[in-house]
Amino acid sequence: MEILIYGTINSVALALYALGFALVYGICRLPNFAHGALYVLSGFIAWTMINTLKTNLLVAVVATLIVTGIIGAVIYRLFLIRVRGMEISEIIASYAIALAILEGLRWGGFRGMTYTLPVFVEGSMTIGGISVDYQRILVVVVGAALVAGLWLFTHYTRVGLALRGMAQDERAALMLGIDSDMMAVVAMGMGSMLAAFAAILLLPLGNIVVESGYNVLILAIAVCIVGGLGSWMGAVLAAFLIGFAQILTVVYLGAHYQMMVALLAIIFTLILKPSGLFGQQKELEERV
């Protein structure tokens, strides 16, 4: 039972880490290596709003989502647009931005173990003899709602359809009058908001530390590679595969090997099926 419960929670957490990264890559083929840094930054923004500006939790959540979204959009407009299409440069530039954010936070005094966000619901309940706290249940419920919401957004709204058009064929989308740079700004803003969303949901379970930015990035990349770069549904499925594999590893082999699961998943995927589970475009390239 604990495998089912905590496997699901772990999988949803991984999906939340990865969704923003998958969305940005899926739409504008931009590997945003600043994703983990934006996750940590949004945690500190929320913390500052609650503890320094003394705003209530709901205001802090909304403001954090908006501010992080704007930061993501600005990062694209000011820096990443200049290297757009040059994949190695995109990786280097976005990783440099990540370093600047994380090291800037550290330099600014955001270090130590005492930065935390409040949980939305206090308390715990027992499911099948296993105690689970409400915040973790909330993570699963909200995570599922978010995936459903994203699907609806990309299938039934004009902006969502434009984003999908970009994801499928950027040149064709351009011919149809879709502003690809504007859509990339929107995608980057949305990807950053998703990072903030994950932070607001998951950070109350622990504490906000600068170093977690690197871990979140590694996990997001692992999920996206296994799922197939650019595929959001692939990312969700991969999150469940890796999430349950991690929990099974902890139960039967030991927690020590937990991090290896994600790294081994990357290695095996690249050896056996480099396009990942749902990486259709890359798969076509592989066949050629």
Binding site: Y6, I9, N10, V250, A255, H256
Partner: peptide
């Protein structure tokens, strides 16, 4: 005896 990697953020299974 459970050994967790540096940076681990979920200890639920060990606690259970």
């Amino acid at each position: 005896l459970e050994i967790y990697p540096t940076g681990a953020t979920d200890f639920s299974i060990g606690l259970l």
